[in-house]
């Protein structure tokens, strides 16, 4: 859960979502489209943000797609990579 909490604050700060309070986000929050409304440019920014904060590299979007569903799936992906 620590990763989810860290991701929430990183998303708000680094993706400039200051109009959203951390309490409004949870593991089931959908990142793209109808969810948080992130788009293709945010997706590549998110790749950089994750590398910067977690040291986890996402080499291409095919690899990233399953992780880029919700805050929870992304946190699980990061946890899996950092545990390895």
């Amino acid at each position: 859960m620590a990763t989810v909490a860290k991701l929430k604050s990183i998303l708000i700060e680094d993706m400039n979502l200051e109009d959203i309070a951390p309490e409004e986000l949870n593991a089931d929050t959908v990142l793209f489209g109808e969810g948080l409304g992130l788009d293709s440019l945010d997706a590549v920014e998110l790749v950089v943000v994750i590398q910067k904060h977690f040291g986890v590299e996402i080499k291409d979007m095919e690899e990233g797609r399953p992780a880029f569903q919700t805050i929870g799936t992304l946190a699980a992906y990061i946890d899996e990579k950092t545990a390895a």
Binding site: L41, V44, V48, Q51, K52
Partner: peptide
Amino acid sequence: DSFIQDGDSCSSPT
């Protein structure tokens, strides 16, 4: 700044 600070692979696309 983005890549000078954090390396070329952290260049900010935004």
